[in-house]
Write a protein that binds this DNA or RNA. Structure first.
Length: 707
DNA sequence: TGTTGTTCCGTTTTT
DNA sequence: CGGAACAACA
């Protein structure tokens, strides 16, 4: 027996916000030991339904450690997680368990999981390795969503769909439709009917557009996010290649399975048709990525996809939250129209009930939060143990202002637009075009950085370069307007150097990045009024670039795993510094804190009024609130600003709506909460709940006018 | 014709 | 703030 299975081995967690004790309960233990002969091949498929806070990550980490202890090869384990951060966390835990058992199995203490990351990152890695066998250039570049939309836009233009008719869907909509069809593996007609009925009339044109889009991507050797999954799925659908790739891995473990889509399920089935060695973990009540094609059907249909069906284990014991918090969260999810299979329970103390805090507006909301978090810090709860969650990244703007004013450090997760900033995209376009000269979107952007070169000239140059095939030194001969002639020489020599077209002169990474920086800096003052501010971002990008071993790795990993946190300071805060966490609800997945505050728990915000078009969207918003609430261990505050600003910008006056409490917390759930107002209302207003009720009805009426 | 400047508008969540 | 559509300049 390994120490893993000994229930008396309780480890004390060192970091405060850490996992439950490492001792495993019977269900967790069953999950850890499932199917363990020595070789993974004898191990049937396993589905673990793991409720919020049920020690899911811990269980999965123990399972991996156990497999290794049983002789599995760490180089043949594939760990698919939802984010890079989750992958790192899982590896860290596995290592911790192995280190603890070092005395028994010293040779495992250094074991590292070779294959761990997101579906997209693993897909990119496999595709580069197998590029030769599937007719792909191993130096393909990867487009993020904006690049993909831009390419689609170019194609749309070429197809003649843009100018003629105003009513043709916008590029972002086109991409969303395309992506939905790919990820759900559904025919275009169905996608249009189900989700984009107002675009149904364009079905034929969209089909034509998508075909041209695919051709363009192939001609340019660029892949978009969906392609990373699609090519992978096609690859393993081929029986020879599928068998070969499947055999790379003795075990495939997938976390957050409720947030995968049909395409991802097909990949798993392609690699492991009989399910042997396959373990998936998830919680149907926490499915919050339907907008990305994720479907809860994956997890529900998983057992039946195999013969004999997969074993199903359920983890219902919650180690995270107090009774009171769990009761409130359970009550919220119990109102969901779909029934969920499990009931979370805990034997933690009852604790204080979650609070519904009414404040007048955004400013009071920020003030209350700052006051509360400082008070908690006085009581010994560090800032890092506290988090503020919100539906949309912009909702924390007022709070960020207040935190900055009071000198309280914070780190914000989600909604980051670092890679969307024009100047960052400029630099990346330069780098990417030199990596892949056929990448038209990058070239198009890079060329227009020059004064005197606009869309027309850029397009003509790209056509010429493309027509000439693997062109060397071609750039020099391109016809450019007289105004651009002088700058052109500098640009050409930069691009030739970066692309290695100058004999033996391609500088080592990251020196070539600095080279491009120098050239770009000269353009910045002309391109942007606030060049000085933007320069700081470029320097930040240079620091990031220096942490990657090569240009290709830099470009790939930055696209697949963009820096996802910002803070009020330029760099990342020092690790030992205390800081508050701000996060979108989506980015909070899998995390936990001692104290959690949720902003704007009002209708229109959660559910977002933009996401109430159909029942499915509303249900997803409900689960989102459930996810947010179940992040809390000891303290949970839900904020109810009575005025909710429609526009986040100061300059636009005070357009606001009178907001009502979220529909997900109807009156009959109020018993689960403590209600309070802040600042405390003056005496004469106390005991008149009517006034608030009125505001709610009024708001509904105003909205109803436009139904 | 093609580039640059101006104005107005909208703004979820993310690999 | 960035994108798109339109207007005005070389």
């Amino acid at each position: 027996m390994t120490q893993i299975m000994n229930p008396s081995s309780v480890s004390v967690s060192t970091s405060g916000a850490a996992a439950p004790a490492d001792a495993l309960n019977p269900e967790q233990l069953a999950a850890v030991e499932h199917g363990c002969g020595t070789s993974g091949e004898s191990c049937g498929p396993l589905l673990i339904i793991a409720g919020a806070g049920s020690g899911k990550t811990n269980t999965l980490a123990h399972r991996v450690a156990h497999l290794l202890a049983q002789g599995a090869d760490p180089g043949r384990i594939l760990l698919l997680t939802f984010s890079r951060r989750a992958a790192d966390e899982m590896s860290r835990r596995v290592r911790r368990i192995l280190t603890r058992n070092e005395a028994a199995r010293p040779w495992l203490a250094q074991a590292a999981i070779a294959w761990s990351g997101t579906f997209h990152a693993i897909g990119a890695r496999l595709l580069r390795e197998y590029a030769g066998q599937i007719g792909l250039d191993p130096a393909f570049t990867i487009h993020d969503r904006e690049d993909s939309a831009d390419l689609l836009n170019l194609v749309r233009h070429e197809c003649g769909f843009s100018a003629k008719n105003r009513r043709f869907p916008q590029k972002a909509t086109c991409l969303a439709i395309y992506s939905a069809a790919v990820n759900s593996r559904a025919p275009l007609v169905e996608v249009l009917q189900a989700s984009y009925p107002w675009c149904a009339e364009w079905q034929a044109e969209l089909r034509q557009l998508f075909r041209a889009y695919v051709e363009a991507k192939q001609a340019q050797q660029v892949l978009d996010y969906d392609d990373l999954l699609l090519y992978w799925a096609q690859m393993v659908a081929d029986s020879t290649l599928g068998g070969e790739i499947g055999a790379l891995f003795s075990h495939v473990l997938v976390d957050e399975y409720q947030d995968t889509n049909h395409l991802q399920a097909a990949i798993l089935l392609g690699m492991k048709p009989d399910g042997r060695g396959l373990t998936v973990v998830g919680d149907d009540a926490q499915s919050i990525y339907a907008f990305r094609g994720a479907t809860v059907r994956n997890i529900l249909d998983f057992p039946g996809a195999f013969d004999p069906p997969a074993r199903v284990l359920t983890l219902e014991r919650n180690y995270r939250s107090t009774q009171a918090i769990l009761a409130a969260a359970n009550a919220v999810i119990a109102l969901a129209s779909e029934r969920y299979t499990k009931n979370l329970w805990t034997d933690r103390a009852t604790g204080e009930r979650p609070r519904l805090v009414s404040v007048r507006d955004d400013a009071d909301q920020a003030a209350f939060i700052v006051e509360t978090l400082l008070a908690r810090r006085e009581e010994g709860l560090g800032l890092k143990q506290q988090a503020v969650l919100f539906r949309a990244a912009s909702h924390s703007a007022r709070l960020e202002l207040e935190l900055t004013r009071r000198n309280i450090p914070f780190v914000k997760f989600g909604g980051l637009k670092f890679l969307e900033a024009a100047h960052v995209k400029d630099m990346l376009a330069l780098m990417r075009w030199s990596e892949n000269v056929r990448d038209r979107v990058s070239g198009f952007r890079a060329l227009q950085l020059l004064a005197g070169i606009g869309p027309k000239t850029a397009a003509r140059i790209l056509d010429n370069v493309c027509a000439a095939g693997e062109g060397c030194g071609l750039l020099e001969d391109q016809p450019v307007p007289d105004g651009a002639r002088e700058a052109w020489q500098g640009f050409v020599s930069l691009m030739d150097t970066l692309a290695g077209r100058v004999a033996g002169a391609r500088p080592a990474w990251p020196a070539e990045f600095d080279l491009a920086c120098n050239w770009y800096q000269a353009q910045m003052s002309r391109l942007y009024e606030d060049a000085a501010v933007r320069l700081l971002d470029i320097q930040q990008l240079a620091r990031i670039a220096a942490t990657y071993p090569s240009r290709q790795r830099f470009l790939t990993e930055l696209t697949l795993d963009p820096p996802n946190a910002t803070s009020d300071e330029a760099g990342l805060p020092l690790l030992d510094e205390d800081y508050l966490i701000l996060s979108t609800m989506h980015s909070a997945k899998g995390q936990e804190w001692r104290a959690v505050t949720v902003l704007n728990v009002v209708d229109g915000c959660i559910p977002s009024d933009i996401a109430t078009r159909n029942e499915g969207e509303i249900e997803e918003e409900r689960r989102l609130l459930y996810v947010a609430m179940t992040r809390a261990r000891d303290h949970l505050d839900l904020m109810l600003p009575q005025r909710f600003y429609v526009s986040q910008q100061q300059g636009m006056g005070d357009r606001h709506v009178f907001a009502g409490r979220s529909r997900f917390i109807p009156n009959r759930l109020l018993a689960h909460f403590d209600q309070m107002s802040w600042p405390a209302p003056p005496p004469e207003l106390q005991g008149s709940p009517d006034s608030r009720q009125k505001a709610i009805d009024l708001a509904a009426k105003m909205r109803g006018m436009w139904d």
